[in-house]
Design a binder for these strands. Structure first.
Length: 238
DNA sequence: CCCTGATTCGC
DNA sequence: GCGAATCAGG
């Protein structure tokens, strides 16, 4: 199978819609899960919660000098000199270090040595410097030792939580309860995805109409047709 | 064990 | 460019 435009588009949609690589591969057919992942990477479709990802890549040198003879995999350079080449939209790792807050154009080498050049508004108060070690090992300092710039807000992954107008009066995931039909309308990830919202057929999670779709008499083997519930993509008859 | 995505590397 | 093989976390 080749990656036609339709298949690529479907891969994109499902990938961004949160489908797993296995689901996508199964849906597309003719490709493996690895193929989907590989293609997604080549399309720069990355960025999705990965079980293995939240690991930094800390220069994993060759572990076994002897008894190698297996396969030379990666050669991690001692330093990281990237950021320009790779990582198109990857936010910088938050953990280790944060860039020093941008100092104003007069970065004196020492704050203590510049008291005579202080800001006219803020009178420099050489206070008793109380330095101790806090619980976490950080240094407690007197107020005069505080850095002037407020530490920047830690970068966080933004979550839209947008109240799209298109689904304003539709049944959203949060509107679901035991009494309304939770049959999905549309496709997850799409802006107008919502749920049926009708009154349920008592005892069932769907309304009467969708119960008819959800529960069907078991036909004998061979006479079955799979009109799937359609989480993604169009009906694909196997 | 199963699942997941990431990465490498021969083709 | 493709994807199997492999890695590694849940």
């Amino acid at each position: 199978m080749s990656w036609t435009d339709e298949r690529i588009e479907k891969l994109r949609k499902m990938w961004e819609g949160g489908a797993t690589a296995s689901q996508i591969a199964d849906e597309l057919g003719g490709v493996s899960r690895n193929a989907v992942i590989g293609k997604a990477h080549r399309l720069s479709l990355k960025a999705r919660p990965s079980p293995v990802k939240p690991n930094e890549k800390p220069a994993r040198p060759a572990p076994a000098p002897v008894a190698a003879a297996k396969r030379p995999r990666d050669e991690a350079p001692p330093f990281e000199t990237e950021s320009a080449a790779a990582a198109p939209a990857a936010p910088a790792p938050i953990a280790a270090e944060r860039p020093a807050p941008i100092a104003s154009p007069s970065p004196a080498p020492s704050a203590a040595a510049t008291t005579e050049n202080a800001d006219p508004e803020v009178a420099p108060k050489p206070q008793t410097r109380i330095v101790s070690v806090g619980p976490g090992g950080f240094l407690r300092q007197g107020p005069s030792d505080q850095q002037q710039p407020i530490p920047p807000a830690p970068p966080r992954r933004l979550i839209p939580a947008k109240p799209s107008a298109e689904i304003a009066d539709k049944t959203s995931l949060l509107d679901l309860n035991d009494r309304i039909c939770r049959w999905p309308m549309g496709h997850p990830g799409e802006p107008d995805f919502h749920f049926c919202g009708d009154k349920v057929n008592p005892g069932f999670p769907y309304c009467v109409e969708h119960c008819g779709r959800a529960y069907q008499a078991q036909l004998p083997r061979g006479a079955r047709r799979p009109p799937p519930p359609m989480p993604f993509g169009g009906p694909r008859v196997r």
